[in-house]
Amino acid sequence: MSKLEESAAMLSFAAKFAKKMSSFYPLEVSNIDKLTPNSVAVSLQIPAEHREAFRFDAGQYITIRHKNGDSEIRRAYSISSAPRKEELTIGIKKVKGGTFSVYANEQLQTGDVLEVMPPEGRFVLKPDSKYKNVLAFAAGSGITPIMSILRTALQDRQDLNFVLVFGNQNREETMFYKDLQDLKEKYNDRFHLYHLFSRNQESDSLFGRIENSTVNYVLRNKHKSVDFDAAYLCGPLPMIDAVRDSLKANGMTEDRIFHELFTEPEAEASSETPLEGTTRLEVTLDDEIHQLEMDQKSLVLDVVLNAKIDAPYSCQGGVCSTCIARVTEGSAHMEKNQILTDSELQEGFILTCQAHPTSAVLKIDYDDV
């Protein structure tokens, strides 16, 4: 093997190993900012020895593991800061009845240490992007990954124009309101910001929710001469569906529209034959093979975790992509899928937290993703 081939092989192995790792790292809370009465921005210090593991593209998320009594919970939070080596920031909105979100807003303190999985996610602005005009629609806490994309785009690209439409109930509950106003003032020739408030009618803002008429207002009125290269949508599913349909009706192709859910969609009724029987499940993880038996009514990830196999996962609701694996033999049906594309489904990828086996044998590979 030549030196060049040897180097390429080492890089390939390193990349594969990095993808497989689902380890958690202790990160110290360096700062907590109160964004609204019900949300905080939490900054985490990244030690020098972990900085390579925590490199990220704008728009990605981290997973936090937290002990709640005798049980363990995992929560995914998008990074709101632009990529930096020393620190990253996430936005956490308090959810009524929530566990970690309430803890983060009411008890978490500077100096506390959180267990954090390295960044993941494909709702990103690539560093080598050639975009000239970017459009974004966010609702509520869906602004969090958009903030990272926005900050990165404006800082790194002097020739890029960014239009953001941001919906909330009122100004008081608007996450990152001051940050957005500061960015608007700093980049007033390249950043166009439209606030929508559904409960209060305020000056310098639109009234209502993000819907078809909002998209038409932006595309046909305010920016009718602009050809947008990409649109980023983040928020609840009804908003995403409405905006995506409107963008397509205005001529934007599907491959230029990117979205990420910030609420878990309702389970769709399955048109498949009711699942019954058992499946022999083979799981490949970190180059180890595990053999299991499972009921087809069970979810693959539940069975894997119950067998004490440390598979990667986070939301367990089909909203993130942490638990993705490739089917190498057999078949599976997912209850929900708002993340994987048609081409990824054709390649055999599944969200294991949503997947039921539909064959006598199912082989999945967490490493080959």
Rank of each mutant, 00 (worst) to 15 (best):
P312I: 04
N68V: 14
G208E: 02
T89A: 06
L292K: 11
G121M: 08
V42K: 03
I289N: 14
I240L: 14
Q346C: 03
G167I: 05
K94S: 09
V304F: 08
Q107W: 02
F258N: 07
L261A: 13
Y103D: 06
A58C: 11
M252W: 00
C353E: 03
A249P: 00
E347Y: 07
K184M: 00
G208P: 05
E272G: 09
N31E: 14
F162M: 07
I289P: 06
D287C: 02
D179G: 01
G91N: 08
L35P: 07
M1I: 10
F54Q: 04
G318C: 03
M21C: 13
S2Y: 01
A231G: 11
E347V: 06
I146G: 14
E347H: 13
N216E: 14
G277W: 03
K363N: 15
H195M: 10
N133L: 01
A267Y: 05
L164H: 10
E6P: 05
T341V: 02
A242I: 03
D128C: 08
G91A: 12
G98D: 12
E87Q: 06
D70H: 14
Y61P: 10
S23W: 05
R280N: 12
C320H: 11
H195L: 04
D57R: 15
A41G: 13
D204W: 02
L88Y: 00
L340S: 05
D156P: 00
Y177N: 07
A136M: 12
S80D: 02
F17E: 13
V40F: 01
N170Y: 06
A76D: 11
H223S: 06
Q155V: 02
L340E: 07
E5Q: 15
A267C: 02
V165K: 07
D310F: 12
C323K: 14
E87L: 00
E293T: 15
S39R: 01
A231Y: 00
S321E: 09
H356F: 05
D245W: 05
P236T: 10
G142K: 10
S12I: 09
I73Q: 15
T341L: 12
E268R: 15
A230E: 03
E272C: 09
